[in-house]
Design a protein around this nucleic acid. Sequence first.
DNA 1: ACCATCCTTAAAATTGCCTTAAAACCGGCG
DNA 2: CGCCGGTTTTAAGGCAATTTTAAGGATGGT
Lengths: 225, 225
Amino acid sequence: MRILLVEDETSIANFIREGLEEEGFAIDVANNGKTGLQMAIDNLAEYDVVLLDWMLPGLNGIEICRAIRKESKEIPVIFLTAKDTTDDAVFGLEAGANDYIRKPFAFEELLARIRVLMRNKQGEGSVFRCGTIELNVESHRVTKKGKTVELTQKEFSLLEFLMRNKGKVSRRTRIIEKVWDIHFDYDNSVIDVYINFLRKKLDEPGSTSFIETIRGVGYRINDEE
Amino acid sequence: MRILLVEDETSIANFIREGLEEEGFAIDVANNGKTGLQMAIDNLAEYDVVLLDWMLPGLNGIEICRAIRKESKEIPVIFLTAKDTTDDAVFGLEAGANDYIRKPFAFEELLARIRVLMRNKQGEGSVFRCGTIELNVESHRVTKKGKTVELTQKEFSLLEFLMRNKGKVSRRTRIIEKVWDIHFDYDNSVIDVYINFLRKKLDEPGSTSFIETIRGVGYRINDEE
DNA sequence: ACCATCCTTAAAATTGCCTTAAAACCGGCG
DNA sequence: CGCCGGTTTTAAGGCAATTTTAAGGATGGT
């Protein structure tokens, strides 16, 4: 899950980035409005959420938001505003934002709002299922036959990505980009290792894996099993 | 959108059928396990969703589900179960169901789950078709009469190329260039071999191949088979 | 009939994934 | 600070599926 953060104050930007990275998101930071807009437009399809500071040097958040909305009405946008009046929030929402949050904010709140938007995005409750395996994004928990299975952060991210693309192939390069935030590395065996971890923890021993490997392409979790 | 409902209690069956018909689905009802299985197997490719009652006279839901899964891993199956423990749900999921719902259920909920599964299924991915053969680029999967056929990467690429040019001739040199990324090699018999692979895996034995060879030029997949 | 072209098969070469183990990293704690 | 446990990354050998090569047989056009 990839998030674009547009924020000029580096201290705040770092705080947010670190917090979100701990939660398993991949974050790109733009520290001024112009590059922020650039990054947003260039890779619209890449981002799952955009966090926009209200006051920015160069180009302010509202204009960026409008510009983004002109390109896509899908991507959730959350405003970060220091101002205190609700009027500003209204401006933000009118510009097409999905939500706003006032600085200073509790990190948990930001997290909660991000999760809500991501859930809305796909419409259904944020639990994915494959056979007896269930992954709950909200509670960050995975169960198999009702019993919870402990997964590390990366394992969880990988499984989540595969689950979100259930039925489709997840190409190796896309996985590396989305889960590890590594670009231009077309031969990275980290994936293999983590696929192996997941299989060890979740497969029914002695039967074919719930993660199918498509040689030369990537992996796929099927609807069945 | 066509749905198969396997349910022995006619009152429930009618309730569900009417509800779904109002929503614009086409429903076929089987009121016992045996005919349910029969209908499922006969017209696998026809149905978009299968609703399976848990307790059925003759053949129970689990067995039907297994049998369906043996034929196709594509079709979404939802269990209707009266039982209350999660264990039963687990059984259903183990048999290959995609989701389960407990009776009595709110009709809205059933509807929501059906919609989720249907959305997952089609995913608006570009699919190419030729007769009973379907190629889905997103899921990187090829099916024939609803049953998936395993193709390697090169086989898939070649078929995709031919499909994209359905009705037109794909010249050998163009195929070599696009699929193998080889240039200036006008005598490469790799194509022959791979055409052969595709035919073996996808042709109806005993009739003319769905890939027509145009001697001295290349190959062509025709619009109708 | 003959030649070019394509089909078929089998074996050789290659690739890419799996697995394992060990190294690097990281946060907490004495 | 240095150590410890857990997590993540790197590395490498083995192995099996895939891809390519090669060669003899079949076929069709002229």
